[in-house]
Design a protein around this nucleic acid. Sequence first.
DNA 1: CTGAAAGCGCTAACAG
DNA 2: CTGTTAGCGCTTTCAG
Lengths: 355, 355
Amino acid sequence: MRASTGDREQDQDPPASPPRPAGRRGPRPAGAATIGRVAEAAGVSRATVSRVMNGSPTVHPELAARVRAAAAALDYEPSVAARSLALGRTGTISLVVPDLANPLFQGVLRGLSQAAAKAGRQLLVAESNEDPEEETILALEARRNSDGLVLASPRAPGERLRALSDRLAPFVLVYREVAGLGAPSLSIDNAAGVGDLVAHLTGLGHRRLAYLAGPAGSAAGAERLAALRAAPGIELTELACGSMFDDGHAAARAVVDCGASAVVGFNDMVASGVLTGLHELGVRVPGEVSVTGFDDIPFARYTTPPLTTVSIPKNELGEQAWARLWALMNGEPAGYNVRFQPRLLVRDSTGPALA
Amino acid sequence: MRASTGDREQDQDPPASPPRPAGRRGPRPAGAATIGRVAEAAGVSRATVSRVMNGSPTVHPELAARVRAAAAALDYEPSVAARSLALGRTGTISLVVPDLANPLFQGVLRGLSQAAAKAGRQLLVAESNEDPEEETILALEARRNSDGLVLASPRAPGERLRALSDRLAPFVLVYREVAGLGAPSLSIDNAAGVGDLVAHLTGLGHRRLAYLAGPAGSAAGAERLAALRAAPGIELTELACGSMFDDGHAAARAVVDCGASAVVGFNDMVASGVLTGLHELGVRVPGEVSVTGFDDIPFARYTTPPLTTVSIPKNELGEQAWARLWALMNGEPAGYNVRFQPRLLVRDSTGPALA
DNA sequence: CTGAAAGCGCTAACAG
DNA sequence: CTGTTAGCGCTTTCAG
C-alpha cells in the first residue's frame, strides 16, 4: 500500500425544512389521526374502528368500508405505542451480539432478520463491542423493548446469565451452551468440526500439525484446542495467535520454523492470514504445507488457494433461533438444545503431505 | 472444492421450562411491578415515583431513597410501551437497507448502531432483499415503530420517495441524493472517485481501460460509468458484468481479449473476481494488467495482490446519519446535503503500463 | 416539594 | 354485529 489522496467531504445545496416545535406532547406528528377521529368521521364507535383495523370478520361489510375510507382519508396510522400498551406486546424481538463486523454474527443477524420479517416482527439490534458486562446490560435493555431476545454472548460468565435468566426470558442463546440455564441454546459442535479436519489431514498423510490458537477468552477457541489436543495420531505444535488476518499473517514464519506439514487456523481470518504470509515466504500451499480454517466466512472461497475449512450454519442459527423464540413466546416448552454439526469443506488449500 | 461431510444437527439434553399461559393481558410477565405498586410500597404517590425514576432533582432525598429501595425490592422495571405512549416517543430509531450481507450497508449499520447507542437509543433494523417496493413499505413500518429513520434505498423511484417523504420524516437518506426531497442526504461522490482512479492509471501510462460494469439498476454504477466515459485521454471498453465475485471471475477472459492494460471494476467484489480469473489464466497483476476496485471492503486488503481501490467512509456515513437524524428529531433544520469525497487507496494491484 | 387527576391511543370484555 | 366502559402503565399540569 503506497499512497492515498482525496478530501473528506464537501457541502452543497441550500438548506430546507422548517424547524418544528421541539417538545410536543403525545406521539403523533401534530393533530394526527387517532382511532377516535376515524370513528367520528365514519360515524361509528372506536371499538368498531379497532375491529376493522385488526381485520375482525364480525363487522358489517358496509361499515367496514366506511371505516376504511375514513381511515384512508385521514391518513390514519395506528399508534404502535398505544397498541403495545393495550396488547402487552411490542411486535418486536431483539438481537444482542458482541460485534456486528464479525461474519458469524452477521450470519445470525441475517437469518433472524428474515425469519422475523416473514412473521411480521420487527428486529432490534444491539452490539456490545465485545464487552461482556455491557452485553448483559444491553440484553436487559433490549429485552424490555421487545417480546423476546436472541443473545450471542460468548464471554459473559455463565453465572451472570443464569442470574439474569428470568428477566431475559423468553430468550435463546446462540453459539453457546450454558448449563442450568432455563433457555434453549443453539451451538456449534466444535469438537466434531476439529475431528473432521484432523481426519481429513491425517488421511492426506499429515502427522505434524501446527495450531494457530485464537484469543484466550473464546469459548469456541477453547473447545477447538481441546479437541485438537485430544486427537490421536498427531503431533501438535500450539502457536499463540489472535483472531485476525494480521495475527495469522504474522505467524507464518513460526509455522515454517516449527516444521509442521499442516497448519490449522483458529478461524478463517487467521488461516487466510497465514496463507498470505506463506505465499510471501515462498512456501507453496498446499504443495509444501496445507492450511485449514474454521467458520467458512464468505471470503474463504476466494483466497488463493481457496481455503479448506469447516462450515458452520450461521444463517440457520438465526432462523432456528427465531423458531425457538417464537415457540417460547407462545408458551411452548423450551425443548431440547441443539448443537449443529459443522461440515467439512475441502477446497484447495490442503493436499497430500510430502513423502 | 471437492467434497464435504457431516450431519446437519443433533438433539441432546432433556427439555425444561414449564409452558406458561399463552394469551395474557397487559404487558408484564404476570403480576409484575408497576409504578403504582412501587408507590404503594414506598408510601408515596405515583407521580413521585415517576419523578424519582426520571431523576428529577426536585424530590426530597429521603423520599427518593425510599422509592429507590422499593423499586429495587420489587425488581421494578418501567414499561417502555406505557412510557412511549405518555411521552410520544419511543427512544428508538430505525435503519432500512436492501441487503444486510452487503459490506456497504454493514458499514452504515455499525456506524449508526454505535452512534445511536452512545445516545442511549435503540436501533431497529430491516432488510428489503433488494426489493424497492418492499423497501418503502418496510420504511413506513419501521418509522412507525421509531422516532426517526435512516434509509438506504438505491433503487426506489425518486418520485415515490418524495411522495412518502412526509410520512417518513424525520429521516435521512444514505448513499443517494434525491432532488426535491425534504430530507438530508449523505452520498458518495462517485465521479470524483473515478476521477482519482483514472488519474492514477493514466499517470502509470495506461491508456486502454476496460470497465467491468455493475448491475443495470445501480445508481452508483451509472455515476461511475458516466464519469469513466467522460474521462479524457483514455480508450474505454465496457464489459457487461454483475456485482459479484463470480461475475468478475467470468469476465477475466474478455478482459485479456479486449487488450486493455488496466481494468476498472465496478466494485471490489468483481475486481477481486477478475484478479483470481487473471491469475488462473496466467496473466500477471500488475505486471501485465492493472486492476482496480471500488468501495474498499475489508476483504480488499487481503486479495493477492492487495487491491488498489477507492475507499468510501461507510461507517462515517452511519455516524453522520445519526447526527443529522438527531438534529432533525430536535426540530433543527435539515441543513446542507453532504457528498463524501472518496479516497484513492493505492495498493499492489496497479503498476506501470508496459512500454 | 408532593399528590390528585387527567390523559396518551388502543383493545377487550360485556351488554345490547 | 355494534357500542359502552374500563383499563394497559406512565407522565404531567395544576393545586396545595
